[in-house]
C-alpha cells in the first residue's frame, strides 16, 4: 500500500507574494506529493482547520512580510494545543538567521530561506515526515 505524502502550502497573514509558495507547491507535486494549496491571507486557525480536514502530513508556510515570529509561532502553539505534533511543520521566506533557532525551538521543524534548492525541501520532507 502506497501512502502519498499530503502537504498543505499556505501563506499566512497580510502578504501577497505567492511566487515562492507556488514554486514550492509545484516542486512537491513533481516529487509525487499531493499538495493542497490554499493561497493568501490565511489565519493560524484557518491553517490548522484545513490541516485537520485534509489530514496532511506536512504544513509548509511561506512568509515574506516579516511577521514570521508571530504567525509561525501561533501555528506551533495551535499544533501543540490540538495535539498535532506529528504533523511536520516547515516555513520559508525572508527569515533572518537569528530568528531561525528561535523558530526551531518553538516547534518549526525546518526553515528554508532564499536560495534554497527545491530538491532540498523535497529531501527534508521525505526524511522527516511521519507517515
Amino acid at each position: 500500500m502506497e501512502r502519498k505524502i499530503r502537504v498543505l502550502i499556505a501563506k499566512p497573514g497580510l502578504d501577497g507574494h505567492d511566487r515562492g509558495a507556488k514554486i514550492v507547491a509545484r516542486a512537491l507535486r513533481n516529487a509525487g506529493m499531493e499538495v493542497i494549496y490554499t493561497g493568501l491571507h490565511q489565519t493560524a486557525d484557518m491553517i490548522i482547520e484545513t490541516a485537520i480536514q485534509e489530514d496532511v502530513d506536512v504544513i509548509g508556510l511561506s512568509l515574506l512580510s516579516g511577521a514570521h515570529m508571530t504567525l509561525f509561532i501561533d501555528v506551533t502553539k495551535l499544533l501543540k494545543k490540538k495535539n498535532m505534533q506529528d504533523v511536520l511543520f516547515i516555513g520559508g521566506g525572508i527569515i533572518p538567521k537569528e530568528d531561525v533557532s528561535v523558530l526551531k525551538k518553538a516547534g518549526v521543524d525546518g526553515v528554508f530561506g532564499p536560495g534554497t534548492h527545491t530538491e532540498d525541501i523535497v529531501v527534508f520532507i521525505k526524511n522527516n515526515v511521519k507517515l
Binding site: 507535486r29 516529487a31 509525487g32 499531493e34 494549496y37 493561497g39
Partner: peptide, 17 residues
Amino acid sequence: SGGALLGDRVRMMELAM
C-alpha cells in the same frame, strides 16, 4: 509524477472556519 496540486480550496476560503 503521481503528485497533484489541489487548489480548489482557494475559491472556498470563506467556508474554512
